[in-house]
């Protein structure tokens, strides 16, 4: 009976698959090929501001003629112009350092949450998620008032007498790191908490009974068990931080080079769409490895 119903709804099943599949193909995958194509184009004073513009009216000969106008110049300039090379390297450096910082800050919090009394845990998880629901932009904005020269942090330090004149934090890389750690912290806490919460505490008791010091027990037992959470958290923060725009733009200074900022400026300020596309293509190539690793990690946890 159920099998019969299944047969009857066969076409319906495929329709169900087809709708989200087609949507993502059209709005997610195909646009990437568009970016790729545009990255080989040249800038033009026209609307849209690039050439060649492919048109079905051209016919095949026209298509081939336009194909020959495509150029590698944009990509090459990314590798030869030190400004771009620097921006890529600096993005990767900032993303790597922030990921480690986030892990260091998030681990004790997640660990403490997982060891909290059972009846508190869901409350604590909700409290981690709550700031994540409030606007990213607003949370970054909040730090401007805190880190500025006349900001609350400097005021506090002056009042304490630790410093006798304001230190510049805003518009430096320090502010960028603080903003990134703050904004991406929940993404690391939650996967860590999920693995630590499932951990069997009797393992640690057994280790202690056998005379293993707590620090060694942590590295030999707790940390390896939490590794899937560490991996998931690191990917979840590293990949988006590499392309981050809002935080370096609002908290960083002109010296803060990040590729998301470069892309934004090439696109909106210089109106160089082909170059912006080339920046995006190369960024994507850099991120393909971590993205694929992230997906495999997701699939592995799905299979469990």
């Amino acid at each position: 009976m159920a099998a019969e119903a299944k047969d009857r709804s066969g076409w319906l099943r495929w329709l169900l698959v087809a709708i989200p599949f087609a949507w993502l193909l059209i709005f997610f995958l195909i646009p990437f090929f568009n970016v790729l194509k545009l990255s080989f184009s040249t800038r033009a004073r026209a609307l849209p501001p690039y050439k060649p513009v492919f048109d079905f009216a051209d016919g095949i000969a026209g298509f081939i003629a336009k194909l020959q106008q495509l150029t590698l110049a944009n990509h090459l300039s990314l590798f030869t112009d030190p400004r771009y090379v620097e921006a890529y390297l600096s993005s990767l450096k900032i993303a790597a350092i922030s990921t480690i910082l986030i892990l260091i800050v998030a681990y004790p919090i997640a660990y403490g949450m997982a060891r909290a009394p059972r009846e508190w845990r869901s409350m604590l998880v909700m409290m981690v998620i709550l700031p994540f629901w409030t606007s990213f932009l607003i949370r970054v904005y909040a730090w401007i008032g805190i880190l500025g020269n006349e900001g609350l942090l400097n005021g506090f330090l002056l009042w304490l007498g630790v410093i006798d004149q304001p230190i510049t934090i805003l518009t430096t890389d320090w502010a960028v790191y603080i903003g990134i750690v703050y904004s991406y912290l929940p993404f690391m806490i939650l996967p860590l908490y999920a693995t630590l919460e499932k951990m069997d505490e009797t393992l640690l008791e057994a280790a202690a009974d056998l005379g293993c010091p707590p620090i060694q027990a942590f590295w030999k037992i707790t940390f390896p068990i939490s590794l899937p959470g560490v991996v998931a958290g690191c990917f979840l923060v590293f990949i988006p931080i590499t392309g981050e725009f809002v935080i370096p733009e609002l908290l960083g200074g002109s010296g803060t080079k990040m590729i998301g900022k470069t892309l934004w400026y090439e696109f909106f300020n210089n109106r160089n769409w082909p170059l912006a596309s080339a920046v995006a293509v190369v960024l994507l190539l850099i991120l393909v490895v971590p993205i694929v690793l992230f997906q495999n990690a997701q699939k592995a946890s799905e299979a469990k």
Binding site: V35, G243, L263, S277, I291
Partner: peptide
């Protein structure tokens, strides 16, 4: 989920 916004925005 992890794609930088600048890439998604530009491609769309």
């Amino acid at each position: 989920l992890v794609m930088p916004d600048v890439i998604t925005g530009l491609s769309l």
